[in-house]
Every structure is written in structure tokens, then in C-alpha cells.
Design a protein around this nucleic acid. Structure first.
Lengths: 124, 124
DNA sequence: AACATAAATGCGAATAATTCGCAATTGGGT
DNA sequence: ACCCAATTGCGAATTATTCGCATTTATGTT
């Protein structure tokens, strides 16, 4: 989380109470989480949650994935992804060696790997 | 595309005109595309486009990624992903060896890798 | 080849997700 | 402690996605 806060400040933004609360909250999650849920759990205004998440995406403090019809976020800290059960939603962590240098004609690479499967509890 | 059609039929669904048109349209894209765009270009009713895309996601005929605030789809044909420029949106294809067998406690794996970067044209 | 019928479409209306506008507040420098 | 641009919170607006239902259409059967 420290890294995210640093980046935020280095970008010239203010480290506000809501932003800190959201980053802190995100840092405690073990699975990607939606704006609505962050709002529900932290009480921070939904529009502000969206603004912070959008900013976090831009500054790449957080990664996003499409789950159902909402976006879910997690801190882009250590190289990792999640694998999520398509039946029950249970998530586990998957380590990964991020590619960050270059790929083809592209530089400044960022990536998000969304993995789904069926977990052992759901496998009948 | 043939593979997608096969899967669709094997699932017991009808191979309808709109579904075929959408799959065909998707198969011609070189970058993931939104429901709205499919509707615009094919004239198929937006609700039907959504229904077909949702079904395609469920049957895993197509992969989805979150781009901006809409979902974008591409056929889940040969193992590949896209890398997209965060400035201009330009996409290129990235080959990949899909993991499909098992990962941790999970089976029946599906994954979607969303990669962004800055393309050479945008790199000043 | 026409028939029956469950599945799918198209349309309009509803809901959910996300963003906007603006007055009030606040973090970070001086 | 003061200033001021950045940010918040709220409500209203948009945009994305889904629903309900009458009509149409694939597909199996005669």
C-alpha cells in the first residue's frame, strides 16, 4: 500500500482521508472488489469511490477486472492475480512474473489476468 | 468461428440469424469490441446483442475484458490475447499458451489477459 | 414440404452502473 | 493560522445492461 500512496503523492495529488481509506481497504482484500462494496463497507460517497478508483486505474495503483457487469479492483502491489470460481465466486491468489518492460512495439506495459475455473467445493 | 458455432449447437441452443451474424462479425475483428459497436455495425437489436454476448461468455465462446466502462468481447478461438495502447487504443495480438487443465484447486480453467502499454506512435 | 412448439428476437420500459455539476470542505504549502 | 486549488458529498444526469412480453423463427416430426 505504501507504494500506492507514494505514487499518488508523486503524481501531485492530495492524500485525502477518503483516498487513504479506500487504498487501505483495498489492501486488506484478498479478492477484487467492486465500487459499490467499497462504498458499503467504508461509507465513502459512491461518486468519490468511483473517482478514486478511476484515478487508481490511471496511475496504475490498482488493477481492474470485469466480473459480471461491474468492475472489480485490487491493489497492483506485488505481482499477483486471482483465480475465481465461476460457480461460487471463491478466489485464490496466483503469483506471476509481471512483464513490465516491453512487448512488441509497446512499452510501459501493464497487464491484468482474469482467471476463472471451478473450485474443488463446486466440483461435484 | 466454426468451433464457436459447434459449441453453441452442442449446448442445445438455436443457431439463429442474429447469433450467427454476431459471431461472424466478432470473427472479423482484430480487437475486442463492445455491445454498442456490434449493434451499430450489424443493426441487431441491442438487447439481443447483450443476450448473445452474455451467452457467449457463459459458453466461453468469447472472452471479455473491461475497457473504460464497457465490456469488450472477442472470440475465444486460437490462444491469443490483445495488447492495447492506453493512449490511442491501437491493439495488437499476443500469442499465448492457454492453461486449460488445472491450476491449484481449480479445474476447467478459462483466462483473459488484458494488456495495455504505450505503442510506438504514441511514444514521444 | 408444411406443422408444431419451444426458444429467440425486437421493441419499449425498467434497473444498475458510472459520471457530472456545483457548493462546501480540506490538505499542503507559505 | 491562512490561502487556494484540489477534492468531497450530494443530487441529478448519463450510460450500460437487463427485463417483460407479443411476435417471429429454428429445428424436430410427420
Amino acid at each position: 500500500m505504501e507504494k500506492a500512496i507514494e505514487k499518488l503523492i508523486r503524481s501531485g495529488r492530495k492524500l485525502t482521508r477518503p483516498r487513504l481509506a479506500i487504498l487501505k481497504f483495498l489492501s486488506h482484500q484478498h479478492a477484487p472488489i467492486s465500487a459499490q462494496t467499497i462504498h458499503d463497507k467504508t461509507g465513502i460517497d459512491l461518486a468519490s469511490v468511483y473517482r478514486t478508483l478511476k484515478l487508481s486505474e490511471e496511475l496504475r495503483l490498482a488493477n481492474v477486472e470485469a466480473m459480471g457487469n461491474e468492475k472489480r479492483y485490487c491493489l497492483a502491489a506485488e505481482p499477483h492475480h486471482h483465480i475465481t470460481c465461476r460457480k461460487c465466486g471463491h478466489s485464490e491468489t496466483v503469483r506471476c512474473n509481471h512483464v513490465t518492460e516491453g512487448l512488441g512495439n509497446f512499452t510501459d506495459i501493464s497487464h491484468q489476468l482474469t482467471i476463472t475455473g471451478i473450485c474443488d467445493k463446486c466440483r461435484k
